[in-house]
Simulated scan of single mutants.
Amino acid sequence: MPRYALQIEYDGTPFAGWQRQADQPSVQAALEAALARLDPGPHGVAAAGRTDSGVHALAQVAHCELARDWEPFRLMEALNHHLKPAPVAVMRAARAAEDFHARFSAIERRYLFRLVSRRAPVTHDRGRVWQVRNALAPEPMREAARHLVGRHDFTTFRATLCQAKSPVKTLDALEIEALAYPGGQEFRFRLRARSFLHNQVRSVVGTLERVGAGAWTPEDVRAALMARDRAACGPVCPPQGLYLAGVGYPEDPFG
């Protein structure tokens, strides 16, 4: 059966995450329902990242198999037609090698977290950013972030229910960009690694926010990392500012 790679964008607000659930809407279920309209029968779709409830994607990658040999552009158009009105869009489709796997073939995942600091409630970005009312200093957050880059035991920044075999991960990059925002300031956290622990990004960003607010020092973040204790973590920020921004492979499946 022909295998296809799909690059997908979605607003995670109405979903209980990527993964199919028995009694709640999911991105996976929406996509599989659209595929069933094109190719009758059950469909299994695998994705590079199982985003949590409320988490968005700019460039999730998934793969599926279909009985019919579809021209990729027509497959993309047909899926987008049947995905309506769900806030999910297939941005690219391509024929993939038989051994391509959206999750296991990936060598890099990139996440973006958007944090807005302003007093007035956000309106246009509601549900798409984490808003705090206090001002934040970017340089202390950047200094603290440098302690987290590299290969570490991230037990402190790992959800207690995380199913990963090891808490040791290599964080390849953690960059913080400060931007002007109407009535305040926006901070964009960009993280890159081969893989992440459950809630690792939200735990890191929530902790760094405390540094920007002056409640923690950069050295406190280093001490929390070295503690290897979940209780040493700062607050875990909410999901709405988190985006799966990209997935890397040894060869680009979309050419």
Rank of each mutant, 00 (worst) to 15 (best):
A67C: 06
M1R: 12
V149H: 02
F15Y: 12
V61M: 11
D23E: 10
A180C: 07
F154G: 12
G41E: 07
T170Q: 05
V61P: 06
P85A: 00
E143I: 10
R50F: 04
Q19F: 07
C237G: 01
V88Y: 09
A178I: 02
V55M: 03
R222F: 00
A33N: 11
E209I: 15
P138Q: 11
G17F: 08
D23L: 08
A178Q: 12
W130P: 00
V221E: 08
G49I: 02
A106E: 06
V132F: 08
A180S: 14
L75H: 06
G150T: 08
G184L: 00
V55W: 03
G241L: 02
D69H: 14
G54C: 12
A245R: 05
G241M: 00
S53I: 00
W216L: 14
R142L: 09
R151V: 03
E32P: 11
V129K: 00
P42G: 13
L197T: 05
F157G: 01
N199V: 01
E139A: 15
R114Q: 10
N199E: 14
M76Q: 15
L136Q: 04
A30R: 13
V61F: 11
W130V: 12
R95I: 09
E209T: 15
A48Q: 03
F187G: 01
E77T: 12
E65R: 14
S105W: 07
W70C: 10
A97H: 13
R126W: 10
E108K: 13
V211H: 04
R146Y: 00
A232K: 11
A36P: 00
T160V: 13
F100V: 09
Q200K: 09
A180W: 03
R126K: 13
S117M: 06
